Each structure stands twice: as structure tokens, then as C-alpha cells.
Computed example of a mutant assay.
Amino acid sequence: MGEGVLVVRQAGAADRAALGGLRRAWTDEQTGDAAFDPDFAAAFEDWLEREGDRRVCWLAERAGQPVGMVNLALFERMPRPGQPRSRWGYLGNAYVLPEHRDAGTGAALVTALLAYAKEEGLVRVVLSPSARSVPFYERAGFHRADELMLITLG
């Protein structure tokens, strides 16, 4: 496991390459082959640029090196007469490098994200966990929900 103090902070424009590197590491871990993709870095940066104000990313670092990330996609409900504004978030793309797992990095990322969600007055945060990550999210306070429906189109 890496040495150094864990720092979790909101990522900015200067962190795009670090976030892209973590996304590439995640892909390599999942597929065993992060195939060479000369357009990936540019495509990733373009995606982050398009997401603009609707997505907030956090970066975890140890000794100045990126070790984990998570992001929150923000959604605002259509206004209703006489009702307060209602916003919610989708927690996505949580990833911690394998050698930095089980050391509080993921929990620190989720804690930062949930603190932000509360400060922003979001009414809920949802996610689509892997089977392996369900206990982790339950420890963070999430519970299984039956209210949503899904159709897979592709």
C-alpha cells in the first residue's frame, strides 16, 4: 500500500489527465487489457468538458499521486408550481487503485461526495453498485431501493 497522507479533494480542470489515467487503470483491471487507444485522452477530456456544471469529480491522492476517484452527476427535476426546487445526484465511476484499497480511500471519497450532496441540498443520491461493492455502500449508509425501473437498450 502507498505511503503518505490521504488527500481527497474536488478535481479541477488541471486534474483531467489524472482522472483519465485512473479510468484507464480501471479498464485494464476489468478487462485485463486497456487496449492502446490513441484517442482516449482527448475523448476523456472532451467528455469532462461537455459534462461541465452537471458533474462534480473528486480525486484521492497519496504523496501527490492519484489513487482513486468518484463523481456525482447532478440532476434537477422539472419545476412544479408551489414546490421547492428538487435536485438529486447519481454517484458514478468510483474507483480506487488495488494497492490502495481497504485503507479508507473509497470511504473518504464517498464521504466527501455525500458532504457535498448535503451542502447542495440534494434530496437523494443513487448508484448502480456491482455485487462486490454492495456491502461497502451499505456501510456508507446506502440501502437497496425498489422504486426505480430500468430498461436496457443495448
Rank of each mutant, 00 (worst) to 15 (best):
residue 48 L to V: 08
residue 46 D to I: 01
residue 18 A to N: 09
residue 29 E to F: 10
residue 75 F to V: 09
residue 48 L to Y: 02
residue 48 L to M: 09
residue 30 Q to Y: 10
residue 77 R to A: 15
residue 44 F to W: 08
residue 13 A to I: 05
residue 66 P to I: 13
residue 52 G to V: 04
residue 34 A to T: 11
residue 59 L to R: 04
residue 42 A to C: 06
residue 14 A to I: 07
residue 85 R to Q: 11
residue 29 E to R: 13
residue 50 R to T: 06
residue 37 D to V: 02
residue 61 E to M: 06
residue 31 T to S: 14
residue 41 A to H: 06
residue 34 A to E: 12
residue 22 L to M: 11
residue 45 E to S: 02
residue 37 D to L: 03
residue 72 L to W: 04
residue 65 Q to F: 08
residue 61 E to C: 08
residue 79 P to L: 04
residue 20 G to C: 09
residue 45 E to Q: 01
residue 56 V to G: 00
residue 53 D to F: 00
residue 71 N to C: 14
residue 55 R to P: 00
residue 35 A to S: 05
residue 72 L to E: 06
residue 51 E to K: 09
residue 40 F to I: 08
residue 67 V to G: 12
residue 68 G to I: 15
residue 14 A to M: 07
residue 45 E to P: 00
residue 76 E to K: 05
residue 78 M to G: 08
residue 85 R to I: 14
residue 16 R to A: 13
residue 61 E to P: 08
residue 83 Q to V: 15
residue 41 A to S: 11
residue 25 A to K: 05
residue 15 D to H: 07
residue 68 G to A: 07
residue 33 D to P: 02
residue 84 P to Q: 01
residue 49 E to M: 03
residue 76 E to P: 07
residue 18 A to Y: 10
residue 25 A to Q: 06
residue 73 A to T: 14
residue 50 R to C: 13
residue 71 N to Y: 13
residue 41 A to W: 04
residue 15 D to M: 06
residue 72 L to T: 03
residue 57 C to N: 15
